[in-house]
Computed example of a mutant assay.
Amino acid sequence: MDTLDMFSTPPEHGKPIKIENGEYIYIPNFYDKPTADKYLKRLIEDIKWKQESMNMYGKEIPFPRLTSWYGDQDKPYSFSGITLQPHPWSPGLLKVKKDIELKANVIFNSVLLNRYRDGSDSISWHTDAEKELGENPVIASVNFGAERKFQLKHKDTNERIDIILQHGSLLIMQGELQHYWKHQIPKTKKPLGERVNLTFRVIK
């Protein structure tokens, strides 16, 4: 299995990185550390966090992370057998949304938040290709807190790309990437602090 470490040959930050069947943009210091620190504290304290569960083989399995869904009030989101009704936008989330819209050139109407409490919290291989996201969705991911490894894997070739998502970073996935590449945040035994991830999207 081929693995590409993004930092072995660093691209020019903020430029689209074209890969087979998609592209992404990664900006490691989209927010400076003092600003990112403030957002992390505020998000942990103010967001309405919940541990959702999904049904597998007749059992309720809790997600290995906390989640929350915010956005326009007519935009619920369904995935993994659950449907989330949006909480109203907070001033802080609207500020982040405005910041990233300038870079992504997209007006987002929703955000899924994930809170990873330590290295044992994770998200398994999946795509963000639900029909309500449209044909080629743009997903903008903002990261605060502990650095975590983000992995992309091509469905057909098994090519893998590893990106270390830094505190205050922005990752934009676009083009047909969601149709051909899975992604995950794997578990790690490293002692880690909390991480909050915001994935902004457009619900059609």
Rank of each mutant, 00 (worst) to 15 (best):
L102K: 12
K15L: 15
V138E: 01
T9G: 00
Y57D: 11
S68E: 04
W125P: 05
N114K: 09
W89H: 11
T83L: 02
G71D: 10
A129N: 08
T188G: 07
G58M: 05
K190N: 13
P11M: 09
Y24S: 01
S53R: 15
Q85T: 11
Q73W: 05
S80V: 05
K103F: 02
D128S: 09
I82D: 05
I164L: 09
K182E: 15
A104V: 07
K98R: 15
K187F: 02
I17M: 15
N55R: 14
G175I: 01
T3I: 15
L66S: 12
K149M: 08
G22T: 08
T3R: 12
H179F: 04
P88I: 02
L165A: 05
G58Y: 07
D37Q: 12
F144M: 04
Y180S: 05
I47S: 13
I82C: 05
P64L: 01
I203K: 00
E130V: 07
I163C: 03
P28F: 06
L66Y: 11
E23P: 00
I17Q: 15
S78K: 12
I107V: 15
S169G: 14
K153G: 02
I82F: 03
D32T: 10
S110K: 01
A104M: 02
L93Q: 12
K41P: 00
V138A: 03
N136R: 10
